[in-house]
Computed example of a mutant assay.
Amino acid sequence: MTTIDLGAPAPNPLHLLDGLPRRATLTLPELRYCASSAGDAPLPFVLDDAVGVEGGEPPAAADPLADRLGVRPAEPSAAAYGEALATLHDPLESLARRGLVTPDGVDPGLLGALGLLASPSVGVDIDVAAGDVRGKAWHRQRDEAVATLATVDGVVFELAWFSTDDWADELRRVPSIPEDVALSPSSVPELVDLPYELLDAAGEALRTHRGDLLDAVVATYDGTVVDGDGHRLSTSEIRTVVEAVHRETHGRIRAMLADVGGPTTTIGVISWVLLADGWHSLRPHRTGDDLRVEVRRVEPFDFATTLAPVLAEVTA
């Protein structure tokens, strides 16, 4: 079983420079050129002319709750995306000008990072939206190394590579909330546990503007919603909470984790939603035969520790 510690950071390495991660900003043509030089290493995404960059491995896993609560900012049109790519310089010239290509070839670090992206043991695909910003990131780990690729527009990418000990710090960058996203008090408690069917049915009633249906749904689940203090919410409190979870949502993170190094691929999913006061995790679980969802207030630095137990499950 693979064990990866995403908790406390490891002690500083003896040689500080050996422990520092490296980052390189590459345009899509530059990235493709480097991948070609790395033995045609496959990139972890596919290009869709209508929407730009879409995720590749690991395979998608169904997450209907995140689909319902998620928001998707307007995607760039195919024409605008093509125009942006057309303005970019020749990749070989621009890479050489920055010292990333020499007469000996592409920088070995870039080639190694792209090789790791193409042949990992563990993969994490991350899709994040906050306000008008939507980004995608692909994290790939094997042995003691991690390589990541990230973009917000499908035109410019950040490629990074570092030791597994630094992975937790890298993951904590993901939930950073843009400065232009205003936060305010939320009507959702710090912790609330409720039936999945309630949250799902309430969302349908709100989308169809059926206040009468929402009242009926909430009444059906009276006494089934519990806050962090063990208090069972009243009908009016339940309505306030389920309305807030849906109406306040203006961002989300979905992370799909996979063990891709074995004979079969195992998938785990993490979902966070951005409510009025910040991030809240959505953790499905079962109580007896009932499928429930725990909605818990979290901070950006909690992201790595949230992924850790799921990562342990998929690599077991």
Rank of each mutant, 00 (worst) to 15 (best):
D222Y: 11
P195R: 01
P178C: 05
P103D: 06
A182N: 14
D180S: 08
E30I: 09
D40H: 12
L110P: 01
F303C: 02
P21F: 11
D259S: 12
H285V: 03
T224Q: 08
P91K: 06
V71Y: 07
D165G: 07
S186G: 02
I4H: 10
E243C: 04
G70Y: 09
L191P: 07
L311W: 14
G230A: 11
G223W: 12
G52P: 01
T102V: 05
G112L: 04
A113L: 07
L114N: 12
L114D: 14
P108L: 00
P189V: 09
L6F: 10
T235H: 13
V51K: 03
S186L: 00
Y33F: 02
V156T: 15
A160C: 14
E158Q: 13
A276L: 08
G55W: 05
L110V: 02
R207P: 05
A304R: 04
V188C: 01
E190N: 06
I267K: 03
D212G: 06
L31V: 10
L282A: 00
A118G: 00
E158H: 14
D104C: 02
R207Q: 06
A130M: 06
L159M: 12
A145N: 13
L43N: 00
M1A: 00
F162V: 10
P91S: 15
S281N: 11
A84C: 06
D222S: 06
S37D: 06
G19D: 09
T3L: 14
E75W: 03
V242L: 09
H285G: 01
S94E: 13
V156D: 15
G109L: 02
V46E: 07
A308V: 05
P59C: 04
R68Y: 09
D67K: 12
S163F: 03
